[in-house]
C-alpha cells in the first residue's frame, strides 16, 4: 500500500492535467485545421500533418528558428562567462562583498517587462543613455542606432545578459564555495599563478554548476517572449523574431490556432532535446 498517496495525488493530478494533458491536447490541435472563431473539430479522420508541412515551407519559421537557436546558444554562453567572472572577483575575500553581490543580482529580481523598458531608454538613438555617455566622451562614431534591425538581436542579448548574469554568478559562487580552500593553497604553493589555478583547477570543478545554470538559462531563452513583447510587441522584425513571438502572432493575433499549436510543438521539442538528457543524467546520478 502506498501510504503517502493522499499527499501527492491532488498535486499530481493538477500537474499532469496542466502540463502533460495540455501538451497532448496541443498536439491534437496541431493535427487539425482549427482557425478563426469556429470551434475545433476533433475528428480523427481529419487529423493530418498539413500544418507541419506548411511550417516546413514557411520562410518566417526558418528565420525564427535560426534566431531562436542563436539566442539559445550565445545568450547562455555570454551569461555564463560574465557570471563566472563576477563570481571569481566577488570571491576574492573582498570588503563589501554583500553589497557587490546584491548589486550584480539586482537586475535578476526584475521582470522581463521592466528590463525591456529600461533598455528602451538605454538604447534610444537620439537621447538615450548609451549614446549620451558615448557623446560625453567624444565617441559619437560608436553611437549606433542600437535597435536597428541589423543590431537588434545583439541588443536583446546584451540586455538579457545584464539581467541574468547575476543569476549565473550566484550559482557559480555556491560552486566555488564548495571547493576546499586547501586546493587553492596547494596549487599556489606550487608556484602556479592565479589565472592558471582558475583555468586548470577551479573551473573544471564547476562543471555541475555550469550545466545546471546553462539549462536554466536556455529555458529562460525559450521564455524570452516577455522581453521581446515588451520591447517590440509581437513582431520584433525578421532579424529578431523568435519562435515564441511567431507562435503568439499566429495563434492570438491571426487566429491560426492549429498553426500556432504546431509552432508550439517545435518549441516543446526544442525544450525536450535539452531538458530530457539533463534530467535523465540527474535521475541516474540519484541527484533528484
Amino acid at each position: 500500500m502506498i501510504r503517502s498517496i493522499h499527499f501527492w495525488l491532488l498535486p499530481m493530478l493538477i500537474v499532469f492535467l496542466a502540463v502533460y494533458g495540455t501538451i497532448g491536447w496541443n498536439f491534437i490541435i496541431s493535427l487539425t485545421d482549427f482557425q478563426g472563431i469556429t470551434l475545433p473539430a476533433y475528428e480523427v479522420s481529419n487529423f493530418d500533418l498539413e500544418m507541419y508541412t506548411q511550417l516546413i515551407e514557411d520562410s518566417t519559421f526558418w528565420r525564427a528558428l535560426r534566431n531562436t537557436v542563436i539566442l539559445m546558444v550565445l545568450f547562455p554562453l555570454a551569461c555564463l562567462s560574465v557570471g563566472i567572472f563576477l563570481a571569481i572577483i566577488v570571491d576574492q575575500k573582498i570588503r563589501f562583498e554583500n553589497t557587490f553581490r546584491i548589486i550584480y543580482l539586482l537586475p535578476f529580481s526584475l521582470s522581463f517587462v521592466v528590463t525591456a523598458k529600461f533598455w528602451l531608454w538605454m538604447y534610444n538613438p537620439e537621447i538615450g543613455v548609451i549614446n549620451s555617455i558615448l557623446g560625453y566622451f567624444g565617441l559619437d562614431f560608436l553611437a549606433l542606432n542600437w535597435l536597428a534591425p541589423e543590431y537588434r538581436l545583439w541588443a536583446v542579448m546584451i540586455a538579457l545578459v545584464w539581467q541574468f548574469s547575476g543569476y549565473a554568478m550566484i550559482i557559480y559562487l555556491a560552486g566555488l564555495r564548495r571547493i576546499p580552500t586547501t586546493q587553492y593553497e596547494a596549487a599556489k604553493s606550487d608556484g602556479a599563478n592565479s589565472l592558471t589555478v582558475y583555468l586548470r583547477i577551479i573551473i573544471p570543478q564547476l562543471r555541475a554548476s555550469t550545466v545546471s545554470a546553462a539549462i536554466v538559462l536556455i529555458v529562460f531563452t525559450l521564455k524570452a517572449f516577455d522581453f521581446l513583447y515588451a520591447m517590440f510587441r509581437s513582431f520584433p522584425g525578421p532579424t529578431a523574431d523568435i519562435l515564441a513571438t511567431m507562435m503568439y502572432r499566429e495563434a492570438f493575433e491571426s487566429a491560426n490556432w492549429a498553426y500556432g499549436a504546431t509552432i508550439a510543438m517545435v518549441l516543446f521539442l526544442l525544450a525536450l532535446v535539452i531538458v530530457v538528457p539533463y534530467l535523465y543524467t540527474e535521475y541516474r546520478r540519484g541527484a533528484l
Binding site: Y20, I29, I215, Y248
Partner: peptide
Amino acid sequence: FLLFVAGIFLPYQSVLVPLTR
C-alpha cells in the same frame, strides 16, 4: 517526482492554445 520536475522546464507556448480553449 521526475515528471513533476520536468514541468518546470515547460515552454509555456506549448500549452497556450489549449489553455485558451
